[in-house]
C-alpha cells in the first residue's frame, strides 16, 4: 500500500529513543517557506518532542497499577519489559505503551484481574504522527475502573506500511464502533474485529480523511472577486 515511503525497517515498529520522543521538526514561524519570510524568524528550528519515559516511583495509584499489571503478566509467562515498552507519567496521567502483539492479553488482564478491574473502555482514538517514522499510527485507549476509581491510558503504535493492531472487541464489546471509526478515519486495521467497515464516511469513500496527509478538503470561498483560501491552504503560525 505505502511501500517505498522511506522507512527502512518495514513492518517492525522502530525502537524508541529517550528522553522524549521526537515526532517532528518545526521550521520558521509564519509558514512562509518559499523565501518570502523577511521577519527574521525564518531560520527558527524547533524539535517537537513528546514527553519521555518516566522512572519509578510514578506517584499516586500509578505504581500500584503498574505493579499489579507486571505481576499479572509475569504469572502468564510474559516478560513485562517486552509487553510494556515504556510507561509515561505526564500531567498526572499514566500511559502504558504496549507492544501491539500483546495488546489483547494486556487488556484482558486489566479487565479481569480483581486488583486492576478496568471495566469500562472509553473507546479508541487514533493519532497520526507522520514524522514518527516506523510508528506513524497510534491507537490510544482510555480505560476506566469504576471499582477502584482509576483511569489509565494504553497506547499502541503501528507503522504506516503495516497498519495492523489487534482488535479488543472480544474483551470490550463497546469498542466495536470505536474501532470502525478509527479504521474509517485513519486506516488502522483492527485484526479480529467482527465487521471492520466504514462507519462515518460513505462506503465507497477513498482514503482516510483524518490522517495528516489527507487535506482538509476546503474549497476556496469567494467574496466579490476576493479569494479566501481554504483553511488548510492559508499561511499560519507554525
Amino acid at each position: 500500500m505505502t511501500e517505498g515511503n522511506g522507512n527502512g525497517n518495514g513492518a517492525v515498529p522502530a525502537p524508541r529513543q529517550d528522553p522524549g520522543e521526537v515526532i517532528g521538526v518545526r521550521r520558521g514561524m509564519f509558514g512562509a517557506d518559499k523565501g518570502g519570510d523577511t521577519s527574521g524568524y525564518g531560520g527558527l528550528v524547533r524539535t517537537v518532542r513528546l514527553p519521555g519515559a518516566s522512572r519509578r516511583p510514578y506517584g499516586g495509584y500509578f505504581d500500584e497499577v503498574a505493579d499489579e499489571l507486571e505481576g499479572a503478566l509475569e504469572e502468564q509467562g510474559l516478560v513485562p519489559g517486552e509487553v510494556i515498552e515504556k510507561t509515561v507519567v505526564d500531567r498526572n496521567e499514566v500511559t502504558f505503551h504496549v507492544a501491539r502483539e500483546h495488546l489483547l492479553q494486556v487488556t484482558r488482564t486489566l479487565r479481569d484481574d480483581p486488583a486492576l478491574r478496568f471495566e469500562l473502555c472509553t473507546g479508541v482514538s487514533g493519532v497520526h504522527f507522520p514524522g514518527d517514522k516506523g510508528r506513524e499510527l497510534h491507537a490510544v485507549y482510555h480505560l476506566r475502573s469504576i471499582t477502584h476509581n482509576r483511569v489509565i491510558r494504553l497506547e499502541v503504535s503501528a507503522p504506516d506500511s503495516d497498519p495492523h493492531v489487534p482488535s479488543v472487541v472480544e474483551v470490550y464489546p463497546t469498542n466495536d464502533w470505536h474501532e470502525r471509526e478509527t479504521y474509517d478515519f485513519f486506516g488502522l486495521i483492527f485484526d479480529g474485529h467482527p465487521a471492520l467497515t466504514r462507519i462515518m464516511m460513505p462506503d465507497d469513500w477513498q482514503g482516510f480523511p483524518q490522517r495528516k496527509d489527507y487535506p482538509l478538503g476546503g474549497i476556496p470561498v469567494e467574496y466579490k472577486g476576493a479569494q479566501i483560501p481554504a483553511p488548510d491552504q492559508r499561511r499560519s503560525y507554525s
Binding site: 513528546l50 514527553p51 490510544v140 503560525y237
Partner: peptide
C-alpha cells in the same frame, strides 16, 4: 496566533 500548548496528551 493564539497561545502555544506544551507537547503531550491528556484525557
Amino acid at each position: 496566533e493564539g497561545f502555544r500548548v506544551p507537547p503531550g496528551q491528556t484525557y
